[in-house]
Design a protein around this nucleic acid. Structure first.
Lengths: 359, 359
DNA sequence: TCCTGCGCTTGAAAGCTTTCAAGATTGAAC
DNA sequence: GTTCAATCTTGAAAGCTTTCAAGCGCAGGA
């Protein structure tokens, strides 16, 4: 591969001049400039980014740490991030941390040794990452948290109104007349699962409804998780008339469980998802969901990061992107026979654990 | 950040010794070794990968160029690649080339300046990339093509039996009795679309069926593409009784079109997808699909790449992973009234362009 | 005690770029 | 034609690691 020395030799200028031409770091008189550019073009020369990064103490790499690209919500985020990065001359190094804080930290430390321009992190849980990222920032590096802001995070962040989204969805269910509303959550040590659960609870509290403990089913963020949790929920007596799943993939699992139990959606049970994946529109029934602006999340994350790289002194940014309810056929009024109290007494169902279902 | 010089100073050894300890590049007597390791641990030192790469003329970065992470087939591939890479100490730089050969090349040239250990490429079309990758290889770099092998490609590759998969699926339809089988293809300048179309044609030829030109609808690899192509197909007279979509997302679009035209699947039209995405199981009806081993594709791609890095002389590898038919409710026998010739004559349908439908 | 040989350590060079201080050139003014 | 200032251009150093040749110390044999 050609290097600057060779360019300099062929263009009959010094090494320094070549550098100045390439970086516009000093005025170079036109004839020289042209000679250099000609040689560069003819050799198809591109500067060695390692040497450049080493000297400048910074590369144009942006490290991105996400939980798992296989989760269908993240590709859009990554794509948004990469588009924004590419447009500004940065490149993305992708790391799947599997929601494992220790893997997150391994990746962070590793990435640091590439002297990246900055890091975009989707943190899984609160404490560990904050500590590490703080230390990282103190080294002068730039870290932007997206999707979820850790509790004591002092740097930039771009997040989605998770709590609010879950609340709105739940409120919608309540307004439709549902009294027995359950939820299937992700692992509750994850920040995002906690936030959505908080929104869920808040909406029910506002509606003066109580939540039996077993109406909150903790599970994993995948279809199997939604499925098994829903099996438990839908076999209770009385069973919930609506279920908020904490993401769309889980909601699909819930749907499958309902189908297997011969419960119709939305006639017997309403199902609400979270994410707003495109495919949910094609399900049977089409799934209602809390839409998150994934692409924007990634795009604005990188945009914020670059802004911070260019101006370390700018004030800290905390963007919160709104969610949006996408209402489709999977959500409807609760079945008549379960709404008023009388009816339920008539129905000869065992209902041992959930005596305080509706208030 | 600490550097080797500092480690050397604190451990009271020379720079070279520190390097030898860290890389096991020479025997170092135990007491010295221990002193170095202690200092390394206490400072939490990690070698600067830029300097290391610069000196060694190679980093532990693997560049990965894919068409678009937003296409639901690719996340699994990327994940497979990353897991394999991470396990061997490599890191993945991800690039979305948008099926744009020129963007592919820009990325390749760019990546080269990071002195990556190698490149994993999912090439979109044949010619351009081959040329560039060949040149790249001649520089001593390692390039592995996955998912699709360009025509004149001489390096390693891991691919999926696209042609064969499409053929099997089509054959299955033919065996069920379908005579009017149509397909919705991706953009036919893409290698993968060509391959699947070839398999489709081959199966019909084997079954002595001819394909009217308008039964091959070229479109884009997304749901909207499948939808619009299917609208065209399903409004023909006589219309096809089965449609093979070249990927699952398109198949979902086809399904939507059928539903809108009040055609039942599979009673009026059978629909076959390609990819084997998990969500297709949850559609109504569950979608039959040609399953591609995405994760394996990525994993084996990186594995092959690393093997080549470690042994440039090993013989060239061309792995071809088999596809598998996943048969679900979306595929069934053709409607009775269209199968035997007689019936069709009776039906008062205009059939101008497709006179030679069944042979 | 001296020498030989082996094996561990060392210092310096190299890899490619950026940047800084210093040197060279140019143009204008006298 | 000189001189000064301003503007370009240059060479060298620095950034951090790996690697190679050379040096050192030690052990064993003479």
């Amino acid at each position: 591969m050609p290097n600057m020395k060779e360019i300099a030799r062929l263009a009959k200028v010094s090494l320094g001049t070549v550098s100045h031409v390439l970086n516009n770091s000093a005025k170079v008189r036109e004839p020289l400039r042209q000679r250099v550019l000609d040689v560069v073009a003819s050799l198809n020369y591109q500067p060695n980014q390692l040497a450049r990064g080493l000297r400048r103490d910074k590369t144009n790499i942006i490290g991105m740490i996400i939980p798992d690209i296989t989760n269908p919500f993240f590709p859009a985020v990554v794509r948004g991030a990469e588009d924004a990065a590419f447009g500004s001359g940065y490149r993305l190094v992708l790391c799947n941390a599997d929601n494992d804080p220790s893997k997150e930290i391994v990746y962070m430390n590793e990435l640091k040794t590439y002297l990246p321009a900055g890091l975009i992190v989707i943190p899984s849980s609160d404490s560990e990452i904050t500590l590490q990222a703080d230390r990282f920032q103190r080294d002068g590096s730039v870290v932007v948290c997206i999707d979820r802001m850790p509790q004591h995070w002092k740097g930039d962040s771009v997040t989605v109104a998770n709590e609010d989204g879950a609340m709105q969805a739940t409120q919608h269910l309540v307004h439709l007349g549902h009294r027995r509303v359950a939820t299937v959550t992700g692992p509750l040590h994850l920040a995002i699962a906690k936030a959505r659960l908080a929104g869920f609870r808040m909406a029910l509290k506002k509606g003066d409804l109580q939540v039996p403990a077993d109406f909150v089913q903790e599970s994993t963020f995948d279809s199997a998780g939604g499925y098994s949790a829903a099996l438990r929920l839908l076999q209770m007596h009385p069973r919930p008339t609506a279920i908020l799943a904490q993401n769309d993939v889980m909601a699909m699992g819930v749907l499958r469980a309902a189908r297997e139990l011969r419960l119709a959606c939305p006639e017997d049970v309403s199902i609400f998802g979270f994410d707003g994946l495109e495919v949910t529109e094609l399900l049977d029934p089409p799934l209602s969901s809390v839409v998150q602006p994934g692409y924007e999340l990634g795009r604005l994350g990188v945009q914020t990061l670059i802004a911070r790289v260019n101006d370390g002194a700018r004030s800290v940014e905390h963007l919160v992107l709104p969610t949006e309810l996408r209402l489709r056929a999977s959500v409807a009024h609760p079945p008549l026979d379960t709404a008023p109290r009388k009816k339920r007494r008539i129905a000869p169902q065992l209902s041992p654990p959930s005596s305080a279902v509706s208030s």
